[in-house]
Simulated assay, not measured.
Amino acid sequence: MNNHEWAARGNAVFIGTYNRFPAAMVRGSGCRLWDADGREYLDFLAGIAVCSLGHCHPAVTEAIRRQAGALVHVSNLFHTQPQIELAELLVKNSFADRVFMGNSGAEANEAAIKLARIHSGPGKFEIISLSGSFHGRTLATVAATGQPKFHQGFEPLPQGFIHAEFGDPASIEALITPQTCAILCEPLQGESGVRPLEAEYLRAIRSLCDHHGLLLIFDEVQTGLGRTGTLFAHEQLGVTPDIMTLAKALGNGLPIGAMLTTEKIAASLVVGTHASTFGGNPVAAAAAVEVLKIMLADGFLASVQKKSRYFIGRLQEVAARYPQWATGVRGRGLLLGLLLTEKGVAQGMEIVEQMFAQGALINFAGNRVLRFVPPLIVSEAEIDALVAKLCQVFDQLA
């Protein structure tokens, strides 16, 4: 069957929540995808920052096969080896002492929200997040998300979520009340246009939490697991949270999420207060163990930093060559955005569609930037190929 036939079948049965490209992807390897028509694509989306080791990484694939042949599921009424090994790796390589596992970033953030409320005690339930933030699609995480477009049609939203102005610590402090229990933020906002939170700003947020007795929650669902050049983005910013959430890259394509915290805070969740039927599923956990082992190997994160510098340089060349389209680059590691001019913004989706026609996958984020989140194994040659396609599109649209 070809792309058109698969799309027709899908459109006949799915609820229309996605605006899909006219391609049915059937195979992947490294930074490449192939559709049902046999067309090849250079993937600089990585499943939206998920397949950070590329598609069908041999070691991850083997770990999945091996575990699927031994044990797929038994529920969290029992211990399983992959889940324990994964939790040990996360604790050993982070600030945290304890881990809760779910299936997605939204679930990890839900767990963090519940933990912040129960730990803070009666009457303290408000959580402050930032304008432009994105924390998930469940009702609570939608309410925490600081983008009104995601709220529309779902009101009334759960109470207790307040949004402060991005980049302004005074805006946060003005919103703190006796009911406030936590501040929730991403070290770098991906969905609203690749907006980094500077170290000074995060230090100010940490200080506010310490002064007012609040918990600091870092949503590292998109920035975590090597994406910004360190295992976790906050490591390079000198600010440590009380709670951290992970997902996306953790399973390199299999659904898994995690919420990490300290021993003292974790003690507030006792038997019966929270659960997840599939959380830490043995197959997903086995994949995640392999992912972490690869990322923690000598030289891996240094290679991400090196490729980041190279990619930033190439994108800066594009901005200099096409000032009518782009003004600069922002982001960290291999979570980068090419800032567009007004002309570029007006044709942002057209640029993405033309890149798709050229066989390259990117997206338009925050109505402001072209976002690039390639697999962390991307080569300089593949970066050059992506840049060449982007230049070709700009030349065509000129």
Results as ranks from 00 to 15, higher is better:
Glu200Gly: 12
Val50Gln: 11
Arg27Lys: 14
Pro158Val: 10
Asp384Tyr: 11
Leu386Glu: 02
Asp97Trp: 04
Gly132Lys: 05
Leu188Ser: 10
Pro178Lys: 11
Met1Glu: 11
Leu90Glu: 06
Ala204Arg: 12
Cys56Asp: 15
Ile243Glu: 02
Ser131Gly: 13
Glu290Leu: 00
Leu202Ser: 01
Val291Gly: 03
Phe311Val: 05
Gln189Pro: 00
Ala288Ile: 05
Thr262Leu: 06
Leu202Arg: 08
Ala46Tyr: 07
Gly299Ser: 07
Glu62Arg: 15
Arg195Ile: 14
Ala286Ile: 06
Thr273Gln: 12
Lys124Val: 02
Leu71Tyr: 01
His211Leu: 12
Phe218Pro: 01
Gly251Ser: 06
Ala106Ile: 10
Gly102Arg: 00
Leu86Cys: 08
Pro169Gln: 11
Met25Ala: 06
Phe372Asp: 02
Pro374Val: 03
Ile205Gly: 02
Lys124Tyr: 10
Ala284Pro: 02
Gln358Pro: 00
His4Arg: 15
Ser308Asn: 08
Val50Phe: 00
Asp37Phe: 06
Ile256Leu: 14
Thr17Trp: 07
Gly238Val: 10
Met101Trp: 05
Cys181Ser: 05
Val283Pro: 03
Phe150Gly: 01
Ala319Glu: 10
Thr327Phe: 03
Thr277Gly: 12
Ser276Glu: 10
Gly16Trp: 08
Arg66Trp: 04
Gly47Ala: 11
His57Lys: 01
Ala96Thr: 08
Glu165Val: 14
Ser129Lys: 05
Pro196Ser: 04
Ile15Ser: 10
Gly47Pro: 11
Val26Pro: 02
Leu335Lys: 03
